[in-house]
Design a protein around this nucleic acid. Structure first.
Lengths: 218, 218
DNA sequence: GTAACAATTTAGACAAATCTAAATTAATAA
DNA sequence: TTATTAATTTAGATTTGTCTAAATTGTTAC
C-alpha cells in the first residue's frame, strides 16, 4: 500500500495529537492541519477506507494498529533526516524541521535502512526526541519540563518540544541546547516564569511559554 | 516562484529531449512523460504562463532561458543525490535513479549547497554524467559511444547513457563500469554488434543496443 | 428534559492534472 | 493544388484535496 503525502501528514498529525491530548476531534485536527473541519471529515473517511483509523461519524476516531505503525515509520524518517541534516550537513537544529517534513515522504525502505546505518543508528534526533527503530520501538525516557521538575537539582536538558524557529532561536540566545546542565532556582506563581542557572553563568528568568517546552531527564 | 513536482518533471523531460532530438513535439513529450498528448497541451499552456517556455500552438515549443535554468538546477539536484546515494549510502549505481527522482524535488537551495559541500563538489555522477554547478555550468567532455569510436585504441568508459536497471545490471554482468579500460576489436555490419576486450579478459561481443549507450573519452 | 450551543457532517463547487472523443491545423503525397 | 494523413488542440469529464454554506448530531446549562 502506498499513501499520498497529504495522507501521511494527517496520520502523523493524529499520532502527535493523540499523545498530547486525551481527546482528539475534527476541530483540533483541522487546526493542526491548517484546513477546515469539513476537509478533515472528507479525509477521515478516506483514511478509514484505507484502514488507517477507526472512525464512527459524530462519535470520534483513533489510529488503527496499521495507522500507528505508519505514523511511527514517518516519524522515524523525519528524525533520521533531521539527524543527518545537523550532523552531516552542518545545519542548525532550528533549520531542519521544515526540510525533514519534505524528506520524510520520500518512499524507500532501503533508503532509510541505509541512512540509519550511515548515521550509525542514532537514538535521538537533534531536538532530543527518540528515533523509533525499524519495528517502531523507541527508548522511553523519563523526562519532564521545567514547570514540573524539582528545584535545586542538577538537570540536563534532554529535549525541546517545540520546533518553531523563533523558539529555537531564543534558546540559542540563552545558550540552552540538548545536554546543557542547569538548575531550577525558583518559580514565580504570578506569571509561571522560572528562574534557572545555566552551567556556571548568572541566573536568568524564562517565561512560562519557554519553560514548558524544555525537558530534562529525571 | 515555486513549481509543482509535475511541472519540474515536464521541464526536465523537455530539456533532455531538446538535447537528444533536433525536433521536439507534443507526441514525443507525451511518450516521455507517459501521458496523452492532450495532457501535454494543457501543461504547455501552464508552463508558458509561468514563462518557462516559448509556445505557439500547432507550431511548437522550446524552453525559455528561465526554463533552461530551472532544468539545470533540477538536474544538478538529481545528480548530487545520486552521487550521495552511491558514495555515502553504498547503493549500486543501478538503484539510485528512481530514488533521485524523488529527492530532486525537495526544495531548498541551502540544502543543495550544503550537500554539494559535504560531497566535496563532485563533477560527475555515478553514471558519468556531469553535475552542473550553482550557475548551471558543467564540464563539457568529448565523448562518443562504442559505435562511433576508433578501433584498436585504449579507451576508458566515461559514461553510460541509459539508467534502466536491466541495462545497468547487464553491464555489471560484463564487468563494465565507469573507468573500465577497454579496446574495440571490430564491428559486425550484420547486426551492428561490437567485439571488445575488457582490460586483460577474453574478448566479448556486445549487442548494438548495449554498445550505443556506452561512452568513452576521445 | 429540553433549549441552546458547539462540534461535526453533508452538499455542492473549485483548481490541478489527467483522461477520451471530437475538432482543428499542418504536412505530405499524388 | 487538393486530399489524405498525422500532429495537435479543444471540449467535457474524472480524481484528489480543498472550500463555503447549510444541515445534523451531541452536549450542556438551566
Amino acid at each position: 500500500m502506498t499513501y499520498t503525502t497529504t495522507e501521511e501528514n494527517y496520520i502523523k498529525a493524529i499520532y502527535h495529537l493523540e499523545h498530547e491530548h486525551e481527546s482528539v476531534g475534527t476541530n483540533l485536527l483541522s487546526a493542526a492541519m491548517q484546513t477546515k473541519p469539513a476537509s478533515v471529515t472528507d479525509m477521515l473517511k478516506k483514511l478509514e477506507a484505507k484502514k488507517l483509523l477507526h472512525y464512527e461519524k459524530y462519535r470520534g476516531f483513533r489510529l488503527s494498529d496499521q495507522g500507528n505503525k505508519l505514523a511511527l515509520t514517518i516519524i522515524r524518517k523525519h528524525r533520521l533526516w533531521e539527524y543527518f541534516l545537523v550532523e552531516k550537513l552542518g545545519f542548525n537544529w532550528d533549520e531542519v524541521h521544515v526540510l525533514a517534513e519534505q524528506l520524510e515522504h520520500v518512499s524507500s525502505e532501503d533508503l532509510i535502512r541505509r541512512l540509519d546505518e550511515f548515521l550509525e543508528h542514532p537514538a535521538f534526533d537533534p531536538h532530543g526526541d527518540p528515533i523509533p527503530d525499524v519495528k517502531g520501538k523507541f527508548r522511553k525516557i523519563n523526562q519532564d519540563n521545567l514547570l514540573g521538575l524539582p528545584l535545586k537539582k542538577n538537570l540536563k536538558v534532554s529535549a525541546v518540544k517545540n520546533q518553531e524557529s523563533e523558539m529555537l532561536n531564543l534558546l540559542t540566545q540563552y545558550e540552552i541546547k540538548i545536554g546543557t546542565q542547569l538548575k531550577i532556582l525558583r518559580r514565580f506563581a504570578y506569571d509561571g516564569s522560572v528562574e534557572i542557572r545555566i552551567e556556571k553563568n548568572a541566573a536568568t528568568i524564562l517565561s512560562k511559554q519557554v519553560a514548558q517546552h524544555i525537558y530534562c531527564n529525571l
